[in-house]
Design a binder for these strands. Structure first.
Lengths: 209, 209, 209, 209
DNA sequence: GATGAATGAGGATTCATTCAT
DNA sequence: GATGAATGAATCCTCATTCAT
């Protein structure tokens, strides 16, 4: 057989990486980050453990690959949404919508990563993506404050609360036995985020001590 | 010498367990959940590793004990706050306040557990406490809806968002270099939770698709 | 049982380390440096592999310990011999003698280390000892040249040749089925080293090209 | 196309083996014996790893081939030198000279093999060549003793010392930043070997105990 | 109760080797 | 002949757990 053309070779490699990605994803969902061993990934990929090392230099690189493959496109879409010519509130809606769509694609995994990584302070995998998202949201909030759409407060704090709610709601949604439609989720979450839970327009005077 | 009375014996055991608890807490703060080995706990407790097994059947039981000891009292206080004769909104304020006070007491650890455990799907430690808190908050929200203080929505969903925000804000607060006072935090978080981020009374019309 | 006194504890640990040392020594002799696995050492020590790590942090530390325990005392004796108030030639004799005595104590192992390390350029274990020995010999040779006992030449080169011959002769000696006495070895090697192989006093005119 | 003639086929195979030899040589020089993996050799040979097995049954055979290809010609030249119609001392000179020339050709590699293999007791690669050399030298020494050029002693012992010195000096020479010329090396080494290090004709009375 | 010692079940990683195409 | 893909056996190391004293 003649040497495979470089392109073809890379294609095959890419397909294998994707197949391993899928296996790793499934193991991650089933066993959690700490339970994700090379053994299990290999088994899920129906491959010898050592073969994993033909595609990834080590476990970290593999996990990094998973994180990138899942988080980065989502973060990308979010950043793009924030760059559309919209009002701040419209952008926030768009961000929520885009997130739900991504999560719907990857179901459990994204939620898992969103959580897992956010929380493991020492685990840098995926942290970059989260930071990008938080920063993007903060930027939108600043725009909203400038335009009088959003009340004045520390934008980074609000952005983190926003992302935390988003993550929690994704989790909720995915775990739900009869998940609601994306649009309904967007609306509910935006309502919560914009108006809070208090009844009525003038509501929400914070209770005295 | 007569045998120690059963009571006295149990008292000593309890003291040892507390001493181990302290050691485990310190290790958890220093090394994180994954870095918490029986070796390190034993060293921190100035005890032989094998002696840990005289007080706890295994590592999980030990960690469970830690989780209980830290989370349960906080959850207790939260439940108590929810039982005071207050309006729903006042109760929510009280819950937030009580949480911040607990977090302030345990600093890193509580926040760590709040995060770490909530997120690790497979890790049931502390999950019970979290569930209790969410349920309690949901109950308060139901009261609020009945009394016209809280707008109508799925109380479990709102409760989870509430707790998620609370956890995120604790994290924020603990990581902060010049942490604000408890009262200020309570107010900010309650404002967010009750009124959202939208400017003005009529704000927060959710953006159309 | 009361806590073992620190002294007693250390004593036991030391005994175990020695027992492991012996096991490692035997494995080294049998399988060579590259064939010395923790598995084999554990088996030879009649211990679980993991127990080795109770006494040595890792394989390198174990091998380092072996090297130190074997090489350092020998190197020490050699250095001491070089500090006696003797003529250079007498010192060289003393060095050879001391080496043979050490080798006799440790038989195969010392020879093995002498070789193994000398040759594995990348393996720093024991290298320090060898360097010390070579330097010491070089010092003695310098003294000999100053005193007119040794002909002028690069002392480092001569020292390395000296040590190489010493090592080779040890090897020879150990492999021999009817090993000669130490004194005879010393004499033969010294004769070789001092006078070479040429017959007669005026011998050894180097052959022309 | 007609089948290649057997001869032609073998020729191609030989060429490939040589090409792999070169690759292996380069890897050996760069990474040492332990760092010489089939992967690296394949990469250096610009060949698939599995293709190596079309030419060598296994790694040992490959290394053996390398050893032979490097050592055998040198040993051959040494044996030839020993067969010239010369005095023993002249022969020894010739042997040293021939060795240095070979080493100069292969630089690091030969020295590496001389060391690495000689010392690894379990590693038979190259051992045969070394034995041939030692035997040849021993033969020359016997001639020298018969002719009164070399003092009486065990010729095998002296031969081994001779070879050990030769190897050490090669190493020295190769590691040297400003290596001396071959002739100078030959002379120095022969002087050492024939006359030892003692000053003066009558020198080298071995020191008394 | 407490301790020191020991262990077995993994886990990541490397590498020589095989085999269908 | 050559290749890409795959593999199993080793190897180092960690850690929860047990047990005699």
């Amino acid at each position: 057989m003649p040497r495979l053309s470089k392109t073809r070779k890379e294609l095959l490699t890419t397909m294998m990486k994707d197949s391993i990605l899928e296996a790793a994803t499934s193991v991650l969902c089933t066993h959690g980050v700490d339970g994700t061993t090379m053994d299990r990934v290999a088994a899920a990929a129906d491959l010898a453990k050592s073969s994993l090392y033909d595609y990834f230099r080590n476990k970290d690189e593999l996990l990094e690959f998973v994180a990138q493959r899942i988080m980065v496109p989502t973060a990308d879409r979010i950043v793009e949404a924030a760059q559309l010519p919209l009002t701040a509130i419209e952008k926030l809606s768009a961000i929520v919508r885009v997130t739900f769509v991504s999560v719907e694609e990857h179901r459990a995994l994204l939620a898992f990563l969103v959580q897992g990584n956010v929380r493991h302070r020492r685990d840098p995998r995926g942290e970059a993506s989260r930071t990008r998202v938080v920063d993007t949201v903060a930027g939108v909030l600043v725009q909203g404050m400038r335009d009088g759409e959003v009340r004045s407060d520390d934008p980074m704090h609000l952005a983190r609360l926003f992302v935390a709610c988003l993550a929690e709601y994704c989790e909720l949604w995915i775990a739900s036995s009869e998940p609601a439609g994306v649009e309904q989720c967007v609306e509910k979450l935006m309502t919560f985020f914009l108006r809070g839970v208090a009844e009525g327009a003038g509501g929400g005077r914070v209770a005295p001590t």
